[in-house]
Design a protein around this nucleic acid. Structure first.
Length: 470
RNA sequence: GCUCCCUUCGUCUAGUGGUUAGGACGCUGGCCUCUCACGCCGGUAACAGGGGUUCGAAUCCCCUAGGGAGUACCA
């Protein structure tokens, strides 16, 4: 039997990290076992489902590289099929019409709560003849006794008492089917073998198993993955920063970093932290998924992102960096090769956004000297080294990092000072602050014209400062 | 309230009866060094609590506490 897994989001928002991880686990399981991964859109809630959400989810999955083999299938296109199943259940007495009023249902719930009981429908309409012509819902006749055993791939054996369950609604008054019915029919029709989903569905599982049983088929294997919590241990939400997968792209994260972070959240393979997608597929094991919920830790994600920025080729980084440069109003084609710029900053940036910000100096003059850096390095003592550097640089024919390194070295030796005495003022002159790539690379990226111009500007700054200091 | 699930450093986790309880992020001391960063070496810090079972429990059982989910004509 080939493994078939699915991801079945409801299109009521963007793809968030929790959903993405569930999708990832499901996808990995299918890939590992040479199976199929299908995408299904659970849009039976006509009120809340939107096309924008569908697109946002697809976009997120594409960015992460979670490609699906079948789908997307839309539940709204399968209403005829659900009706067929409902009619069959009705005909066999396994479902029935119910016209209990809201008021009655509310009263039932209140009474149950008052008696410290679990609220459940009392089966009032089970034996009543409710006409098909009047408004009604259809309920599934749940077994009254016995137990439902779910051998969960992650949780192990979980047992539910049928007495705890009630007759759930499978078709609304407006004729639309509800989740617990559609999910069962779809998983059945799509021949899903392994249902990997969030553990908020664990409590639904026995109901679904009962429906499956009424349909005369065996349930698939279930694996309920725990939730993801925010940094502070509370439920993940907007106030924890980005929760939408696409927000991470905008924030300058690499998809492989997010994927790597997500796979390690609740799953592990010994002490290994870094996993390529191929390794994930090879090593992933649903048994090794943790039972406990885990907290999302942005620092670790950042570390992974930095790791991948360092690992990837400068060419790919440059490609990914480009749009972020555009966000700053910079056209990377006007200036140094972005690949060189990216390479120079690969070990220095945690995100592509950071990289864009710290490498802006390569393409345009900075606004002003950073106060602290200027105060420390652009002082009268720096005038001599800067003047000498200016002359030296102006005389240079070729402009390569190697030659530039020799030039800085030469001035330091001539002045009999440590390299820092020359390099730091020069650095502040070139980038406006005290941190940048190696001074030779920095000079190279800024280019000859701009370097001379900025050194002049720094010299002026020193003069003015001296003058105003009196 | 009721049902179900969960509980190892701050966080992610290893660990499946005998370990100085390991790794990673973070934080931190140092080295490297033209700055920042990278890298390298070191440090910090955990078995929720209480009972059992056992020669021996992070590991098995029970209870308590704490967290989470469900309890919808949402999914």
């Amino acid at each position: 039997m080939t493994v078939r897994t699915r991801f079945a989001p409801s299109p009521t928002g963007y793809l968030h990290v929790g959903g993405a991880r569930t999708a990832l686990f499901s996808w990995l399981y299918a890939r590992k076992h040479g199976g199929k991964f299908v995408l299904r859109i659970e849009d039976t809630d006509l009120e809340r489902s939107t096309m924008e959400s569908v697109n946002a989810i697809l976009e997120g999955m594409t960015w992460l590289g979670l490609e699906y083999d079948e789908g997307p299938l839309y539940q709204t296109k399968r209403f005829d099929r659900y009706d067929e199943v409902i009619r069959d259940l009705l005909a066999r007495g396994l479902a029935y019409r119910c016209n209990c009023s809201r008021e009655r249902l509310d009263r039932l719930r209140d009474e149950a709560m008052k008696n410290k009981q679990k609220p459940r429908y009392d089966g009032h309409c089970r034996e009543r003849e409710v006409s098909a012509d009047e408004p009604h819902v259809i309920r599934f006749r749940n077994p009254d006794t016995g137990i439902v055993v779910v051998d969960d791939l992650i949780r192990g054996r979980v047992t539910f008492n049928n007495e705890e369950l009630d007759d759930l609604i499978i078709r609304r008054t407006d004729g639309s089917p509800t989740y617990n019915l559609t999910v069962v029919v779809d998983d059945l029709d799509m021949r899903i073998t392994h249902v990997i989903r969030g553990d908020d569905h664990l409590n639904n599982t026995p109901r679904q198993v009962n429906i499956l049983q009424a349909l005369g088929v065996n349930p698939p294997q279930y694996g309920h993955v725990p939730m993801i919590l925010g940094d502070d241990g509370s439920r993940l939400s907007k106030r924890h920063g980005a929760v939408s997968v696409m927000q991470y792209r905008e924030a300058g994260f690499l998809p492989e970093a997010l994927l790597n972070y997500l796979v390690r959240l609740g799953w592990s393979h010994g002490d290994q932290e870094i996993f390529s997608v191929d390794e994930m597929i090879e090593l992933f094991d649903i048994d090794a998924v943790n039972k406990a919920a885990s907290s999302f830790n942005s620092d670790k994600l950042l570390w992974l992102n930095q790791h991948y920025i360092k690992q990837e080729s400068p060419k790919r980084i440059a490609h990914l960096l480009s749009p972020h440069m555009g966000d700053l109003g910079i056209d990377p084609s006007r200036g140094p090769d972005l690949v060189d710029v990216a390479e120079a900053h690969q070990e220095r940036a945690n995100t592509l956004v950071e990289m864009a910000e710290m490498s802006a100096f390569c393409y345009r003059d900075f606004e002003a000297f950073e106060e602290k850096a200027a105060k420390k390095h652009l002082r009268p003592a720096a005038r001599e080294p800067l003047l000498r550097m200016r002359d030296e640089l102006a005389s240079l024919g070729d402009w390569t990092a190697e030659i530039l390194h020799a030039a800085v070295d030469k001035i330091a030796v001539e002045l009999d000072v440590k390299m820092g005495k020359v390099a730091q003022p020069l650095r502040v002159a070139l980038v406006g602050r005290a941190a940048s790539p190696g001074i030779d690379v920095t000079l190279f990226l800024v280019g000859k014209q701009a370097s001379l111009r900025r050194i002049d500007r720094a010299l002026e700054f020193i003069d003015q400062r001296e003058a105003s200091a009196g």
